[in-house]
């Protein structure tokens, strides 16, 4: 067979196959092969969800009782409001309506789920007391992520906690005095980073611009109520 005929046939075959790709099935977890292209399109268009408006935030504060935090996922620009859905000791799991969770310990983010490139766990036992006390000092800090191959990537940090003085904290329904704290972390295994927090007088981390891994980069959160 000569190439032109073959090529034409293949083009028809490819088109027919593409048209047929939308399979139907009674199986609950069937995956459409076209999803691959959907994912690619989403990546190519780099479409970030629109930021939350002041009005949306005010409305949520009016309708949702209890604590609320604002969350922004650094490099993807995704924003969400989150509320607590579970507590285990000091750890409080906050969830967005979109099915993402972030776990905070005394207001400090220690894990996430559903963001992509999640911080799977961290050892902040030595670092967090320094931040909460707004005290200068050095502490070890460990962050764990899943690799592309489902292995665990462990970054061992040494962090310097640097209090940056008093600041006003104004967000949502909270308005009060607090202290700004900067944390510089260095490591031989992971990228060095700087995170910034605002800590209340009773040692609760009200807000953070926290380095949260190479995919998320900075996770920004603010307590609104």
């Amino acid at each position: 067979m000569r190439p032109t005929k073959t090529l034409r046939r293949r083009a028809i075959a490819a088109l027919a196959a593409a048209g047929l790709l939308a399979a139907c099935s009674t199986e609950k977890e069937s995956v459409n092969a076209l999803d691959v292209f959907g994912e690619l399109r989403a990546k190519l268009s780099n479409a970030n969800p629109p930021p939350l408006s002041e009005a949306q935030i005010r409305q949520s504060l009016a309708t949702v009782p209890g604590p609320i935090r604002f969350l922004e996922v650094g490099n993807r620009g995704g924003q969400a409001l989150i509320a607590p859905i579970g507590q285990n000791g000091d750890y409080v799991t906050w969830a967005s309506a979109g099915g993402q969770n972030v776990v905070f310990r005394n207001g400090f983010a220690v894990q996430s789920r559903g963001l992509g490139g999640d911080l799977m766990s961290s050892d902040e036992d030595a670092l967090l007391p320094l931040i909460r006390a707004r005290q200068q000092g050095t502490a070890p800090y460990v962050m764990r992520f899943l690799s592309g191959d489902n292995d665990t990537i462990v970054y061992n940090y040494t962090c310097n906690v640097l209090p940056r003085g008093a600041t006003d904290y104004v967000a949502g329904e909270i308005n009060g005095n607090a202290t700004a704290v900067e944390v510089h972390c260095v490591s031989e295994t992971g990228p060095d980073h700087v995170s910034r927090y605002v800590v209340s007088s009773d040692g609760y981390v009200l807000s953070g611009e926290q380095w949260f891994g190479q995919l998320t980069e900075t996770l920004t959160y603010r307590t609104l109520r």
């Binding site: 859905i85 559903g114 995919l215």
Partner: peptide, 12 residues
């Protein structure tokens, strides 16, 4: 492409 996957979070 997305280490760890982007499925929604589990319940605590």
């Amino acid at each position: 492409p997305v280490p760890g996957g982007n499925e929604t979070a589990p319940v605590p």
